[in-house]
């Protein structure tokens, strides 16, 4: 669905952020885009959605060049940015004004999601808190049934119960042909939700793997002592959080530990 080949991009008067970046993402997945501050996560999302133009190389999303901003491309993409602007009208009117642009818009699903997030269609958007606005935008984005959903820091501003609801509604509202790209710093918030991890560092993809593959190859757990099998470790209140080669079946992936290991240069798997 997303094909990026030899992408070059840099902001004005700055060195290239992406230098020959190549990447492929398939539909039917919830991909977590992780990276430190300034790694290029939001820039990559903007390039994918056509908000900025590449300096070189090719970006294709569902066969479209995002920079052409064709209506058919835009009606199949929904981007929930970290900072957003919404008009001072009720949710009901906002839906009335914007939903007709999306051919597969699911009003029943929207009602259900608003209900889950405890929002009323009569709420005036401008009078809602940042977290409530975000919950509305997430609900709207899911109801559009766009094939590509881009969520930039979706859990920022959400309270703890809402983060849980977010995971629940996202997992329960997607179709097989949809791709969700979630950029976040809050790796704990997307644990048990994402199925693919993509880690960016200084404009390069340093890790891109399916979580199931990781869990079959590596064991994530606690240890009192470090032994020779430990690939990566961090001190924790219970001793050490460790990554070891997997011996029996699979274990839940500790994304935060994995992210720290990759960021610190631990070589787990040969990457692209």
């Amino acid at each position: 669905m997303i094909e990026i080949q030899n992408l070059n991009f840099g902001y004005k008067n700055k060195e290239l952020l992406f230098d020959h970046l190549s990447l492929q993402l398939q539909p039917g997945s919830i991909t977590g885009l992780l990276g430190k501050n300034g790694a290029g996560k939001t820039t990559l999302l903007k390039l994918i959605s056509g908000l900025i133009y590449p300096k070189g190389g090719n970006v294709k999303v569902g066969g479209h060049k995002p920079q052409e901003r064709k209506a058919s491309f835009l009606s199949d993409l929904y981007f929930v940015p970290e900072e957003f602007a919404l008009p001072s009208i009720s949710i009901k009117n906002h839906v009335k004004a914007n939903s007709p642009f999306y051919h597969s818009f699911d009003h029943v699903l929207l009602d259900r999601l608003l209900n889950e997030f405890e929002l009323s269609v009569e709420n005036i958007i401008d009078k809602m808190s940042y977290g409530q606005k975000k919950k509305y935008l997430i609900s709207f984005s899911l109801a559009t049934k766009c094939r590509l959903l881009i969520l930039d820091e979706p859990t920022n501003g959400l309270d703890i119960p809402s983060k849980d609801t977010f995971r629940k509604v996202l997992a329960g509202s997607l179709d097989d042909d949809q791709l969700v790209l979630i950029s976040t710093h809050q790796v704990k918030d997307v644990e048990n939700l994402i199925d693919t991890i993509l880690i960016l560092d200084h404009g390069k993809v340093i890790f891109h793997k399916n979580l199931f593959d990781i869990s079959t190859q590596f064991y994530f757990g606690q240890a009192m002592k470090l032994d020779d099998e430990v690939i990566y470790s961090e001190t924790s209140p219970n001793g050490f959080s460790v990554i070891k080669p997997q011996i029996n079946g699979n274990s839940p992936v500790n994304i935060e530990l994995l992210f720290n290991a990759i960021s610190k240069g631990t070589r787990l798997i040969e990457n692209e």
Partner: peptide
């Protein structure tokens, strides 16, 4: 951003 992403 939101203007440029309107599907038209």
């Amino acid at each position: 951003m939101s203007y440029l992403l309107i599907p038209s």
